[in-house]
């Protein structure tokens, strides 16, 4: 029974709609590419670009991924610490949260060029942009999550005279996990966007898929541009898959998962 369920994706009902849509889009793409080669490169050319030099794409993908993940890690640590601070100290909350909300709706794409001017073409501006992009969704979600504990639970632990640290560790942090994962599902793919935006704004940068795209497009090499875009799409999807898999394991207790299992 459960094996059948797990292999459910093998059934046509599962994959057929997607396959049909993909084939349709592929045909549409090919027709467009044939009519106006400056709009889209032929799919075959994109494939050839990838096949001719896989090491090139792999190396640049890795460069972008490294920036994305390190930036994400920095943003995560910083925002998590600030979220705890903000949820524990009402004064800090009133001071910081309005600024955080305003900054979170500011397009970071606009900040990237300024950071390149300030920090040069090294990894710093890229990491800062990526960290910043990941910072606010995590801060806002975790700060909300840490305060999402029901009053009745708080009452029980208050009568037990649990310390603030115990409350944070045993009650607030686990309560914030679903909120954290909501943020992470947004932020994991977003980190790649942050890295690429930073690379695009730093024209002298040495590597990364963003650099590949900006160089190739100024040389009119559309096939290479789309090959790089294809790599980025795959990277984003894989990151999303990874975080969703982790979430499934960590949040197995959550109501949203209880109906489906057992």
């Amino acid at each position: 029974m459960s094996v059948l369920k797990r292999l459910g994706f093998l059934r046509p009902a599962y994959w057929l709609p997607l396959a049909v849509l993909l084939v349709g889009l592929g045909i549409l793409w090919s027709v467009t590419a044939k009519d106006s080669p400056y709009l889209l490169p032929p799919l075959a050319a994109v494939g050839e670009a990838l096949a001719a030099n896989p090491g090139f794409y792999l190396a640049n993908a890795w460069a972008t991924l490294a920036v994305a993940l390190v930036g994400l890690a920095i943003g995560f640590v910083a925002s998590f610490i600030l979220a705890v601070l903000v949820s524990e100290l009402p004064l800090a909350r009133r001071a910081i949260m309005p600024i955080a909300v305003v900054l979170s709706v500011t397009p970071l794409v606009a900040i990237a060029p300024a950071l390149v001017v300030a920090f040069g073409f090294g990894p710093e501006p890229k990491l800062i942009v990526t960290a910043l992009i990941c910072f606010f969704p995590i801060l806002i979600n975790v700060a909300t999550g840490l305060r999402s504990v029901s009053p009745a639970v708080l009452q029980v632990f208050t009568t037990l005279h649990a310390s603030r640290l115990e409350m944070l560790w045993h009650v607030r942090m686990p309560s914030a996990l679903p909120y954290l994962f909501t943020a992470l599902r947004v932020v994991f793919p977003l980190s790649i966007i942050g890295a690429v935006v930073a690379e695009l704004s730093a024209p002298g940068a040495a590597d990364g898929l963003g650099t590949v795209i900006s160089v190739a497009s100024s040389n009119n090499r559309l096939a290479v541009v789309y090959a790089a875009i294809f790599c980025l799409a795959i990277m984003g999807s894989v990151l999303l898959l990874i975080i969703t898999a982790i979430e499934d394991r960590v949040l197995h207790w959550h109501e949203s998962r209880q109906g489906a299992t057992s």
Partner: peptide, 9 residues
Amino acid sequence: PQAPALLPW
């Protein structure tokens, strides 16, 4: 308390 207030995890 009036609501069971258990930790869901």
